[in-house]
Each structure stands twice: as structure tokens, then as C-alpha cells.
Design a protein around this nucleic acid. Sequence first.
DNA 1: CGTTATTTGTGCGTATGTATT
DNA 2: AAATACATACGCACAAATAAC
Lengths: 249, 249
Amino acid sequence: MTSNDQPGEAAYKVLARELRQAILRRRFADGVRLPTEAELAAEHGVSRQTVRRAFQDLVADGLVHRVPGRGTFAAPREGQYLRQFGSIEDLMGLSLDTSLEVLRPLRRLVNVEAASRLRLDSDTVYTVVFRRLHEGNPFCHTAVHLHPAAGSALADVRTLATPGATSDATIIGLLDDRLPAPIAEAEQSITAAAADAPLAEALGCPPAAPLLRVDRTYLTTDGQPVELAVTHFLPEQYSYRIKLKRGLG
Amino acid sequence: MTSNDQPGEAAYKVLARELRQAILRRRFADGVRLPTEAELAAEHGVSRQTVRRAFQDLVADGLVHRVPGRGTFAAPREGQYLRQFGSIEDLMGLSLDTSLEVLRPLRRLVNVEAASRLRLDSDTVYTVVFRRLHEGNPFCHTAVHLHPAAGSALADVRTLATPGATSDATIIGLLDDRLPAPIAEAEQSITAAAADAPLAEALGCPPAAPLLRVDRTYLTTDGQPVELAVTHFLPEQYSYRIKLKRGLG
DNA sequence: CGTTATTTGTGCGTATGTATT
DNA sequence: AAATACATACGCACAAATAAC
């Protein structure tokens, strides 16, 4: 800091907010270059590093995109919308106050669809079916299909092999300790579905009741899919909350 | 750069990747402090600034959390999961190939629940109901409730005032150009619901069919809620896809 | 086709502020 | 009060990509 600063708020944050507003108000038309780092530094009486720090936030928010040698550009208006932000605890704060109850133990069996979604050559996967309870009440039902390597890695987990057994484990947590490469990302798809007979029984809801269906494919750092989880949630006891932040096209 | 650098890959990126792997593999137990910036700088033969740059990425990914004066900590294992990432075009790529058809025109009316969710003092909001079509087929039904200021700002929009009128507009797009402060973020909640009679008719599905229900509250940069949208999607023609990245607890 | 100017990317050193222990 | 550790800010140097000449 120079000398006469009142660091109540960081200079780069002030600049970032100012630029954010200007971009959201479309002061910079699509494809038009924003002022250069040097220009902004001069205008605002800060160093180029401070300008860069502000742009880092805007890039992280997806509001601008930068090209060396060319400049900085506002995210294209085309399809510009709101970007996912924040955490996913609401959905996955599962192992906290919940317990897992095995309905069908982990077993190796043929499942062409699951195998294909895991991008396997063979047709066999390892499958375990369970439900989760919160204070004794079931609120979701999950079928997990595993890559054979992942499935055999879990073969020795007692609680997954025993029908009716309960624990507070998560599959991803178990895999983490047993796979050579850690799980790094997932692809998720959310939709709605009617409860079929087994689902209705497991969840204690009327048949054909509307459920929230979440399909998730987990990938290791190598990009190898290792787990496919299909979960049905009771909507009364559950909703998926997200915060969205503006930016990106 | 000093002199003997081979800038094939930035030093801070190498360090960031190394730390990322170590954290995902839980080399640092919950609540344990990571090495300080100075220690990492010395270990890796880089400057403290470079270490900071690496940590910036990890913070952005939600993998670590830092406290001035105390240190840097891996995201708590408890509930550690996958973090939202990527864009939301799949959900909101609406105005592209779709058209909006007004079912009930924009009008001012009393709605206690909507007013309270918009944090209004009064009980009256502006409401418009429409559905969206893709290639002539309806795929979602939306009721939009607006803050009075926002509602009156849209009072002159012909296509919202006319039942049966179609357009390719989005409410947020219309508001953007008419509100003093731009819309910056939204809070969203996703659940499942059964189709009631009006929904079934508007969407052409059987009554009690399962639908994906998305409630969204839009906020301006001031944090003022201006729009509440309740949308029901046909699951057959629609699913909400997200990519998740590891990190955060 | 190379040269040059512009613009962003990376890296280091230093100084000072602030929060925690 | 002192030591520790992260946060902010400035300055400088050079690299790399781009565009214009």
C-alpha cells in the first residue's frame, strides 16, 4: 500500500466490482476490447498488478475472457446467463446426519446400460443398492454401479456385503482410499420420475409418486469413469438448492 | 522469471497441481495446517508470490480455506464433496430454440406467499404465466412473480400483456434493460412435483405426472429480490445437467 | 517474411497491514 | 508485547502471443 490508503476495502475488489457492474450493464459490447491493464492502472491510480488481481476475479466468475497479445473481452452476450456457484452441501451433506442401509448387497452382475455409461468394454459391473435414512426416515434410494476394478476394491467392505447392514459411509469416500487415482469430478443429470413398486416400498411413498432423480457419473483424475449412481429422492424431505452468479456465455 | 526457467508450464501451476493431488489424497488430515507460504516457497525454490498464486487457484476450487494469522487448511473432510462447476446453458439455453407463449398476461394481484418470498412489505405482486415450446412442443410451464417496481417496468411489454402471444424473450433479459441495477445472482431450488390439472393441460401430460420443479429468486446487485420464477419441466424432454469438480466441504 | 509495437502471462523482491497465537 | 502467517500493493523484468507494418 502506498501511504494514504484506508484498507477498509481492497483496491482490487473495488475495481473488480466496478468492472463487474459495467460489464453486466453491457457498457462493453460483444467482441469489443476492454481497456488494457495499463490504461486501467493509470485511470484508477493503481499498479498494473492490482488491475490483474481484479481481472482474476472476473475471469473466475466467467465474466471476461482474456487473450495474450489481444486484450480482455466481456463474455459474449449470446446465452449469457447465470453460473453455478457455491457449494453442494445441501445435496451431499449426506454422511452427516444420515445412515446408509443396504437393500441389495454388492455383487457382480450383467448390466449393459450401466456398463456402457461407464464406458466399459465388458457388460458386467458391480452393483449395490441402498437407501439413506435421516432420523429413521428414508429419504433417498440409490443404485450404485461400479467399474469392475472399483467394485472388486470394495469387495472386502463388510457393510456393503450384508443386506440390512447400516453405516455412515459414502461410496465415494470408500473408493477414495482404495483407488490408485482419486475421484476428481462428476457429471450429473437431474430429472423427475415416478416411483415404481420397489422404490415406493423402499421410500415408503405411494406408487407413482413424483421423485427427484439424480444420475451421477464419477471420474478419476485420469478421466476414467468409475462409478455411476442413480438416486431417487423424496421431494417432501429434500430439495436441491444452488446459488447462481451472473456471468459467462 | 529468473534465468534457468523452462516456461513449458508455469511454476505456480505445477505447484497447484501438486498440492491439489496431495489434498485429494488426504495427505493433510482435517484441521491440520498446511505448510506456510514461506515453507513451500523454500521447499520448491520459488518466491512467496508464486506460492500465493498457486493457493489462489486452490481457494477458487474450494479445496483449501485460509485464515490470516493462522494458516491454510484443507477443506474439511466432513461432507467434502463435489463442487458445482461449469455453465448452466443446458438449463437456461432457453431463448435459443424456444418460444414463449403467454397463458395468463402480466397483471397486478394479491399473492401473500410470492410477496413474502420477494421480501415485500405489501401483498401484491405482478404475475405472468407462460409456457415454453421447442419445435412446437411445450416442455415447461412458468409462473413469474415480480417486485412491483419490476412489474410496472414491464407493463409496456406488449407480448407479456397479450394472452396467446409468442416471442423469444426471457424475463431476465427484459428486466436487464429496464431496471436501475442489473440482476447479478439467483437462488435456485430444485425438486419434483406432480402435475395438477392446469399444468397437465398446459404441458400436454397426464394429470399427476412427475415434473421437475425449479424455483428461482433473482437478485439485483443490491441484493434486492426482484423476480420469483416457478417452473415445471417435463422430464421426458428435459434434464438438468451439471459438471461437478472436487473440492470444498 | 521478418520486425516491431502492443498486450497479457509469469516471476521475483519488497514493504506494509491485519489477524491470530 | 512479540512472533507468526496471511492479505494487499507496488515496482520491475522478461516471456509469449498477437497484430500491423
